[in-house]
C-alpha cells in the first residue's frame, strides 16, 4: 500500500503530531515501505471462525473502597503550567471533540 503525503498528514493530525514538511516527506516513504511489508498478511487464510479475538478469563473486580488521593501539591508538582490548584493550558476554544 502506498500512502500519499496527504494521508500521512491526516494520520499525523489524528495523532496530534505536528510534522515538519521534511518529516512528512520522509515518513511517507518509510511508512509506505513498512505497510507494503506488513500487507504480506493478505496471503493468510483467516476464514477459521474459531479465531476468537477476546480471551474469556474472568476479570478481577476491585472492591469499592476509597484510598486516599494525592494532595493537590503532589498531583500538580510536575505540571508544566498551573494556576493555584488547577492545571493550566492555552485557552480552549470549543471546537468539536
Amino acid at each position: 500500500m502506498i500512502l500519499s503525503k496527504a494521508d500521512v498528514l491526516h494520520v499525523a493530525r489524528l495523532s496530534a503530531l505536528a510534522l515538519t514538511e521534511a518529516e512528512a516527506e520522509r515518513m511517507t516513504g518509510e511508512l509506505s515501505a513498512i505497510l507494503n511489508y506488513v500487507e504480506g498478511l493478505s496471503a493468510v487464510d483467516i476464514s477459521d471462525k474459531t479465531l476468537e479475538e477476546v480471551s474469556l478469563s474472568p476479570t478481577l473486580l476491585a472492591p469499592d473502597v476509597p484510598v486516599p488521593s494525592l494532595s493537590p501539591d503532589v498531583a500538580l508538582a510536575g505540571a508544566p503550567d498551573r494556576s493555584g490548584s488547577f492545571f493550566q493550558v492555552p485557552r480552549i476554544l470549543e471546537e468539536g471533540r
Binding site: 469499592d64 476509597p66 493537590p72 498531583a75 492545571f87
Partner: peptide, 27 residues
C-alpha cells in the same frame, strides 16, 4: 452512586476543591 471511581479508588464525590480527588491512575 459508587464510593470510588470506575477504574481507580479515588472518591466519587461532588463539590470537593479542585484536584483533591485524583491519583496517578485518573491523572
Amino acid at each position: 452512586l459508587t464510593k470510588t471511581k470506575l477504574f481507580c479508588r479515588c472518591e466519587n464525590r461532588f463539590g470537593a476543591s479542585p484536584n483533591t480527588l485524583v491519583c496517578p491512575v485518573c491523572l
